[in-house]
Simulated scan of single mutants.
Amino acid sequence: MNTRYTAIATASGREGRAVSSDGRLDVTLAPPKDLGGSGEGTNPEQLFAAGYAACFASALQLVGRRKKIDVSEASVTAEVSLVPDGEAFGLAVTLRVELPDELQGETGTALVEATHQVCPYSNATRGNVPVKLVID
């Protein structure tokens, strides 16, 4: 496998810190109030949502360039939910892709579905995490 980039981060748990190896990311972690925590920091689901939204938006730009479609006005919001899964927990994701009016309909749907095939986060979660695509 030809690796193009490797990100490295260390965390001490849901309460503490997460730090990237280069020091560019250094965040305080705390469970959200909804889960009985202080809410005084970020949490893994927020970090995953930010990463997935950024990655999907970048993949959308790539697919747009390949198809010669201007997607510069598009944005992606990721909603990452922590859900019970028997004795464990899992994730569920909704990706809300905001497209300009001229890309609504079949063109936008095809564009978003093609992006879902290209995005590394989509490929990593496929078959393991339910992902709902919503075009706004």
Rank of each mutant, 00 (worst) to 15 (best):
V19M: 07
S21F: 01
L35N: 01
D101G: 03
A11W: 01
R14S: 00
A78M: 12
E45F: 08
V80I: 14
L62V: 14
V93P: 00
G90L: 10
E40Q: 14
S75A: 13
A92N: 04
G23R: 11
I69M: 14
L25E: 03
P31M: 12
G108R: 03
G39A: 06
V93F: 09
S58V: 01
L29K: 05
L99D: 10
A114I: 06
R96E: 15
T28N: 06
V83E: 00
G51P: 14
T10Q: 14
T109P: 02
S75G: 15
A114L: 11
A114C: 04
T94Y: 00
G13N: 05
L103W: 04
R24K: 08
V83M: 05
E15M: 04
G16M: 07
A88P: 00
E15P: 00
G23E: 11
G64W: 06
R65N: 14
S12V: 10
A54G: 12
V71K: 06
G86A: 08
T94I: 14
T10I: 11
R96Q: 13
A88C: 00
V97P: 11
R66D: 14
L82S: 01
S38P: 01
V112R: 02
V80D: 02
G108S: 07
P100V: 03
P32M: 13
N43H: 06
D22Q: 01
A114V: 04
